[in-house]
Amino acid sequence: MATSPAVCVFCLLLFLHVATPEKASAQEINFGSYADYQIELHDVTMGDLEFEGPIVRNGGVYQVELADAFILEIIGVKYLDVGVLIEGEGELVLDSDSEQTIPFTLKGAYANRGQESITDVQPVTLTNNIGDVRFPILARDQAPPGPPPRPPTGEFNQSEVNESAFLYLYGEIDVGDVDAGFYSGTITINVRYDAPPESNN
């Protein structure tokens, strides 16, 4: 009996698969991995976390209140948890002289009630401007987690199950005997489904 072309192709692929050196591992199911669900991050405030003036030398503590916070919108599947890692620098540095610094204390909070509102935010604990938090995109209150999401296939439209959570960043600086000029620092935010990414610091 003649071998059909399809069978030849199958045998070739099977051979390649077996011959490819791969690390042997047992099959496992990681319920914490959501391969193709997307997360979108949007800057709601359209700008920096800026301490507004007039800020003067030896002026002491200046604050950005929660009501004036930098707001990051996190759009994702509403019945999944996201882990958020926040890493902020501890000082703002003068652009022309790195020896001139202003201590910076970062504060954070999130809202996951489907709308941007500071009335029912939850605080994010930060130590030395670094911290992480895990929360569902849409608060479940006391209810148990819902059913697992439908696997992302060609017919799956994630936008139908998306919701927005909001991350608020604010804080204070303590201005001492420093030179005049523009001071800046950076906050890095990493977001993924399930647990927060691990810090490199």
Binding site: D48, L49, E50, F51, G53, I55, I102, F104, A180, G181
Partner: peptide
């Protein structure tokens, strides 16, 4: 996110 302040 950039954090900034201008000291006058």
């Amino acid at each position: 996110v950039t954090v900034s302040a201008t000291v006058q």
